[in-house]
Structure formats: structure tokens, C-alpha cells
Design a protein around this nucleic acid. Structure first.
Lengths: 142, 142
DNA sequence: TTTAGTGCAAAAGTTTTGCATGGTC
DNA sequence: GACCATGCAAAACTTTTGCACTAAA
């Protein structure tokens, strides 16, 4: 669920990167923002087409890629062979995924850094980031 | 780096699943075991062909899939759009990846479970597993 | 000898790209 | 008006599958 501020921020992101505010981008942005769970580019495109929006699949791909590069959406790759996109907040967070219904919950209170710092140093690494995906079954699916 | 025991275990895994011990599978197994870092099916195939081994790309894919299903190898998906395979031990562990050279270090001392248990319960989830990928830069690449 | 595995090529699927056209700035 | 974005179709890629053939059990 995206707030109005988030949408606004996304448009600022685009503008800041020298990208134009087109109708198609707004459409993709809005649809992505309205989606609680993660979606593939194909799903997004199909939905918009079904609703009567006229935009090409390539545009959806291009827009999602731009948004991902700008940091406005996260790219998840839990289903082999296809990428899922999801609207995300700014802060560092992780995902708790329901393996039955694809529901996504954000975990914002990440407590990993001290541990990671330590073990990485032990291996001579300097960490630049980390990604945690927790899978489980949500209350509705049990 | 795989030990002799690991190789043996993999063959037992295959046998136990009713799978035959063929020359091609042994080749793939050995190559994967000798590889410290992660590889794609295509890379593996290319290397074996370059060395004179005669086996089809489809066989590499099939073998890797079987090994993954049997739990003998891990499947990583950090490069969008393609899957990487890596020989792995039995125990639960995570990966520390060098973003420069693709080097992989296993982190075996995972301390996440208590925290995950707690936050999952708060969201009504029962966790079934988790996966952590830490990216950084290794000592050699700095 | 029965059954599973392989190779090859074709197919399926996702994502990218080239290029003429249309919309933004 | 300059230039970016779009649409469409073709291309590029990864991965899977069908089928005749080979090899393991």
C-alpha cells in the first residue's frame, strides 16, 4: 500500500533523474503502488490491458527497470526465471513471504548488522548490503 | 571445495532417489565440486565442452535440477534472469558474496532464528525457512 | 531386456532492442 | 523544435520438452 507521499516521491525521483512524467509511467506507478504483494512485469501488463489501458509490454519492462534503478521499487527473484517487482519504502527492510498466497509483509526492524559486520570482517570482507527473504505460511493460509 | 565424502554423498543421494549413476552426471558433479564459486548452467556446460567433454546443455540443466531437488546443490539467483548453482554442505548456512569477483563464502553460524520466530509470530506467520545473501567486497578486490 | 538418461533441435518463456511514430519539455 | 518515450515486432536469452537413440540396471 503506497501513500500519496510515496507516489509523489517516485515522481520526484523520475524527474530528478531527467526522466519525463508520462501517462504510461504514472499508470504503472499507480498500479504498482496499489498492489500489496509482488507482481511480475507480465502480470502488471496483463492487468492494465484488461482494464483498458493501452500500453505496451516493453514499456512496462522499461518503466519497472527505471524505477528499480532509481530505487523506487524492489526486485525480488524468488520464482526462478522471472522477476517480481514490489513497491517499497525507503528504509532498509526485509520480506516475509507466504508461500501459499504470495502475501508479503515487510520487516523493518532489522537486527542483523552487528552480526554481519563481525562475521564479514572475519572473512576479510567489507559488507555493502544484505538481503533476507523469510518464507512461511500466513495466518489465512493455515 | 568439495571433499571426497561430499561427492560420495551426492552419488548416494542420486542412487537413493532411484537415479542412475551416469558418466555425464559424474562429470557435472565433479566440475561443480571443484568450483569454489557459483556458476550458471551455461558456464558449466561451456567449460566442460571446452575441455573436450561431450555432453548436451540440456543434460547439464537436467542434472543441476536433480541435484538441487535432492538438496545437493544450492540455487542462487542474485543475477537477475539467470540461476547460479553451487555445491553446498548439508547444514543450514548463508552466503557472503563478493560483488567484484563472485567469490562465495559460507556463513554457517546463523543467529537469526530467535529473532525471526518472534517477528513472524507477530505477523501471524509460521516460518518455514529463510535465506540471507550478504554482498560485499572481499579482501583481494579491495 | 526393461527402463531411465542423453543429445539434438524445437519450443516455451521472459526480457531486451531497433526503429518509426507520437508526446514532453 | 529537440529529444525522450512508446508501440510493435523481431531478437536475444535462459530454460524446458519431445523424441529417437544409447546405456545403465
Amino acid at each position: 500500500m503506497a501513500t500519496a507521499e510515496q507516489l509523489e516521491r517516485a515522481e520526484e525521483l523520475l524527474a530528478g533523474a531527467g526522466l519525463r512524467a508520462t501517462a504510461q509511467r504514472a499508470t504503472v506507478l499507480a498500479e504498482l503502488a496499489a498492489e500489496r504483494d509482488d507482481v511480475t512485469a507480465q502480470q502488471l501488463h496483463e492487468r492494465l490491458r484488461a482494464r483498458g489501458e493501452r500500453l505496451g509490454l516493453a514499456t512496462v519492462y522499461r518503466t519497472l527497470r527505471l524505477l528499480a534503478e532509481a530505487g523506487a521499487v524492489d526486485v525480488l527473484s524468488h520464482h526462478a526465471g522471472e522477476l517480481c517487482y514490489r513497491w517499497c519504502g525507503d528504509e532498509h527492510h526485509h520480506h516475509l513471504l507466504c508461500s501459499e498466497c504470495h502475501r508479503v509483509v515487510e520487516l523493518v526492524d532489522c537486527e542483523l548488522d552487528p552480526w554481519l559486520e563481525r562475521v564479514s570482517r572475519e572473512h576479510g570482507f567489507v559488507t555493502t548490503g544484505h538481503r533476507l527473504e523469510v518464507s512461511g505460511v500466513c495466518a489465512d493460509c493455515r
